[in-house]
């Protein structure tokens, strides 16, 4: 399928966001096509997370428009909950529900939001736990799991809603080094299966391997974007070169 005929899953147009007087997003425009994997990199405070969080309206924007699967999500008439059902989000701090078992973490939104029966939700949850490799922990509580396991539960919990797009906000930044791999492996599997993904990360190996496109942000703006080859061999901006030299 030719790329330009693909459906646009995310369409951001001139998005502006202030935190007080600080301009967190400065006229950002970005399209993400169906099945595309976009990795966003950049120094801290550059607006990467804010950009990601605005895609499911965890941040309200002060200007511009954002469409998710063709729906203008900042239109007051739009039911944002409906949009969010289709957009999975994985957080740096996992945010698994500590008062629920792993299984209940995965079934809760399926039952409450998707109105699935308990049996159906459990079956789907079990399948996803197998996929992320923690079937034996389904009755455990999150505090009995390692960070890597918790993050995989969080990914499975999002996937249980059958999202059309997955957003990852520095999913491995809070993990001990030895657990990063297991989470990245799950994400790579997802990528291979064709999931549309937008990933904010500092894992350059992952970016190089998985990304269709890498976006470099600085001071709330997209400074440069291109394929991993372009980025890691021959970035055009001085700021990008400097950042890469610091991080690699």
């Amino acid at each position: 399928m030719p790329t330009d005929e693909r459906r646009k899953m995310v369409e951001m147009k001139g998005v502006v966001k202030y935190f007080g007087r600080l301009k967190a997003l400065n006229q950002v425009s970005l399209d993400v096509n169906d099945g595309e994997k976009v990795v966003i990199i950049g120094p801290s405070g550059s607006g990467k997370s804010t950009l990601l969080r605005s895609i499911n309206r965890l941040e309200e924007i002060d200007g511009g428009r954002i469409f998710v699967d063709g729906i203008d999500i900042y239109d007051p008439a739009v039911n944002i909950n409906k949009v969010r059902e289709e957009v999975g989000m994985v957080f740096q701090s996992f945010n698994v529900f500590p008062h629920k078992t792993v299984m209940q973490n995965l079934t809760l939104a399926q039952i409450v939001v998707r109105k699935r029966s308990k049996g159906e939700a459990t079956e789907r949850a079990m399948r996803l736990l197998r996929k992320v490799g923690i079937t034996e922990k389904s009755d455990a509580y999150p505090n009995q799991l390692s960070g890597g396991q918790q993050q995989r539960v969080a990914i499975a919990r999002s996937l249980a809603m059958d999202p059309k797009i997955m957003l990852f906000d520095e999913p491995t930044s809070a993990l001990d080094p030895e657990m990063i791999g297991e989470v990245l492996d799950v994400m790579k599997t997802l990528a291979r299966e064709g999931m549309t993904m937008v990933v904010v990360t500092h894992e350059m190996g992952f970016a190089r391997e998985v990304a269709d496109r890498i976006i470099f942000m600085d001071n709330g703006a997209i400074l440069e974007q291109g394929t991993p080859e372009h980025f890691f061999t021959n970035p055009s901006q001085e700021r990008t070169k400097l950042f890469l030299s610091q991080i690699l």
């Binding site: 969010r84 059902e85 999975g88 945010n95 939001v113 999002s158």
Partner: peptide, 8 residues
């Protein structure tokens, strides 16, 4: 945020 992201 996690709960809202799941569509609740």
């Amino acid at each position: 945020e996690a709960a809202r992201s799941l569509g609740m």
